[in-house]
Each structure stands twice: as structure tokens, then as C-alpha cells.
């Protein structure tokens, strides 16, 4: 049990520290690298929660593919230096106030939780395993799965249509 706690708190420190680092770093590359560290820590949380599929998807998709794309875009655009001052000065105090309200509310909800939550279905031992996810993806969620594929195709066509340079054959 103790080892679990050590792992959990170790990861929590890494996750929160990298999150703060992401927000505070003035260089976009450092911010992106912080975000990768954060994603990895969260992925290990998923592993602890016995959700290996989500953990690996988190690393492969977010920490891998998406972040590499981010880094490429940052470097290609030469946007490493972030603008120092934001034009909306009232935003920061407002964000702090709203953030505090959110934290207080969350704590209050946890302290006096009231009302029944919907009956939670007992999960089986293989819940969240790649095999179980694959099976439900191709049985219960077959239609959503297929619709997403059409959706992504439409989005891809759209992106190409909007960005392709017009070769006017006038």
C-alpha cells in the first residue's frame, strides 16, 4: 500500500509541477515540453487506475503525435518567443477570482454531496482492457465508430479545400 502512495504522490507532484511550468514558461518550446511531461504523468495515472488502453493511447496520441505536431508548428512558424504582455489586462485578476470560485465550489460539492447518483454498474475485471474496448467498439459502438470515420473524412476534405492554393486557370 505504501508504495502505491509514494508512486501516486510522486506522479502528482510531477503532473502539477509540469502543469505550472507549462503556464509560466516564456518560451513556447519549453511550454510544449512541459506539456509532454504532464501527459506522461497522467498516462501513468491511467495505468495505476487499471486502464492500460487509455494510458497507451494517451502516450501515443497526445504525448506522441499531437505534441510532435505542436513542436513542428512552433518551430516552423518561429514562434518560440511568447508575447510578454497580454492586451486584455483585466483577464488575469478575473481568471484568479473565477478559478478560486471554482475550487471552493468543487470542495463544497465534495463535502456535502447530496442526492442519489445513478446506479453505477459493477465493472468486470477486464473492463478497459484493449480486448474489451475493441469488442465494444465493434459491437455496441459500431455505428458511432463508423460515423466518426465519415466525420474525419469530411473534416479532412474541408481542411484541404480551404488551404489548397488556388491555381487559377483563367
Amino acid at each position: 500500500m505504501l508504495i502505491d502512495w509514494i508512486i501516486f504522490f510522486g506522479l502528482a507532484v510531477v503532473a502539477i509541477a509540469s502543469g505550472i511550468g507549462l503556464l509560466l514558461s516564456k518560451n513556447a518550446i519549453y511550454a510544449a515540453l512541459n506539456l509532454i511531461a504532464n501527459f506522461t504523468a497522467v498516462a501513468i495515472f491511467y495505468l495505476i487506475l487499471a486502464a492500460p488502453f487509455i494510458a497507451l493511447a494517451q502516450i501515443a496520441v497526445y504525448a506522441g503525435a499531437i505534441m510532435v505536431l505542436f513542436l513542428f508548428v512552433i518551430m516552423l512558424l518561429g514562434a518560440e518567443r511568447l508575447g510578454g504582455t497580454s492586451t486584455l489586462r483585466w483577464q488575469r485578476p478575473l481568471a484568479i477570482v473565477l478559478g478560486l470560485i471554482l475550487i471552493v465550489e468543487t470542495v463544497l460539492v465534495f463535502i456535502n454531496r447530496s442526492g442519489a447518483i445513478a446506479p453505477i454498474v459493477e465493472v468486470t475485471a477486464d473492463f478497459g482492457s484493449p480486448a474489451a474496448i475493441g469488442e465494444s467498439l465493434f459491437s455496441t459502438y459500431l455505428l458511432p465508430f463508423e460515423v466518426i470515420s465519415v466525420l474525419l473524412l469530411a473534416a479532412m476534405i474541408g481542411a484541404i479545400v480551404l488551404t489548397r492554393r488556388r491555381d487559377q486557370k483563367a
Binding site: 459502438y141 455505428l143 458511432p144 460515423v147 466518426i148 465519415v150 466525420l151 473524412l153 469530411a154 473534416a155 476534405i157 474541408g158 479545400v161
Partner: peptide
């Protein structure tokens, strides 16, 4: 794109699961 959008709209009329409603909405909107 027009045909894709129409298929999304038709799906929206049939969707009887909130997940399908969301996906149909995206398929018609994008």
C-alpha cells in the same frame, strides 16, 4: 461536402442516443 452534411442531418433525425446526437451534429456542422 453538401452530401456529407445532409447525411449528418438525416442521422440527427434518427439519433436516439445522445452520443449519436453529438456525432450527427458534428457531421452536419463541419
Amino acid at each position: 461536402l453538401l452530401l456529407f452534411s445532409i447525411s449528418g442531418m438525416m442521422l440527427m433525425g434518427m439519433a436516439s442516443d445522445l452520443i449519436m446526437v453529438f456525432l450527427a451534429l458534428e457531421l452536419l456542422s463541419i
